[in-house]
């Protein structure tokens, strides 16, 4: 006997009652429930009861909220937005809107949407770093640069690049970390190393 021809047990039908009433049961399964119901009074009663409960549930009315609630809300908001003694605090919604605007601007600034701008910002950050390090090692006072300094500087460049990637990801953008690492972080780190090596040779 194929599974589809196997009669359903009462327990199984009880589990399927809701799906049966939703008409979300697939054809063959539904036919098996129908076949069971023809010969089972208890399950027919179960279906009838489920239908009755569902009808009663859907007939439950929406409740009307008292006007007093809105009045109280108005009073609470007026009290909350009242200026503090001597201050001129803006309403909460205005402050929230301003905060949102700043968040949006910060996100735009940190994470440009265009795929062209993403590497450009990374490169710009790397360039600033390289220039900064270059200025540092070529400052008038004499400094000693060790290989450990070079390693540390490289590490810092990579860390900054990784943070840029994380911030961008956090802001909801897809970031190819492998590309960021290979095309931005590695060249920047190499550039810093080069500058420091020159300094050692000198």
């Amino acid at each position: 006997m194929r599974r589809a021809d196997t009669p359903l047990s009462c327990g199984r039908v009880k589990v399927l009652v809701e799906a049966y009433l939703d008409e979300s049961l697939a054809g063959p399964r539904r036919a098996r429930v129908d076949a069971h119901l023809v010969g089972c009074e208890a399950c027919r009663a179960e279906v009838a009861q489920a239908l009755q409960v569902r009808t009663a549930l859907r007939a439950l009315p929406w409740r009307a909220c008292s006007d007093v609630v809105l009045e109280t809300v108005r009073t609470r908001l007026a009290a909350a937005d009242a200026p503090a003694s001597g201050g001129n605090r803006k309403p909460a919604a205005v402050r929230a809107a301003a905060a949102q605007e700043w968040t949006r601007r910060l996100q735009e600034w940190l994470v440009p949407r265009s795929s062209v701008w993403k590497p450009a910002v990374g490169l710009a950050a790397a360039a600033v770093l390289v220039v900064g390090v270059y200025a540092f090692v070529h400052r008038p006072t004499e400094i000693q640069v060790t290989p450990q300094d070079m390693q540390r500087a490289e590490g810092q460049v990579r860390w900054v690049m990784a943070r840029i990637g994380q911030i961008s990801q956090h802001a909801g953008n897809k970031v190819r970390t492998d590309v960021l690492e290979k095309r931005v972080a590695d060249p920047a780190a190499r550039a810093v190393s080069g500058v420091l090596e020159d300094n050692i040779r000198q």
């Binding site: 409740r63 009307a64 008292s66 609630v69 109280t72 809300v73 908001l77 919604a93 929230a96 949102q100």
Partner: peptide, 30 residues
């Protein structure tokens, strides 16, 4: 209010919840 009413089954509690939700809506709706 309807949702709170059927969840809590008490008019006063449902009104308190509605009031609080509306205050929070004011703070967040922007």
């Amino acid at each position: 209010f309807t949702y709170a009413w059927y969840c809590l089954g008490d008019r006063d509690d449902a009104e308190d919840v509605t009031q609080e939700v509306l205050v929070r809506l004011w703070r967040h709706w922007a």
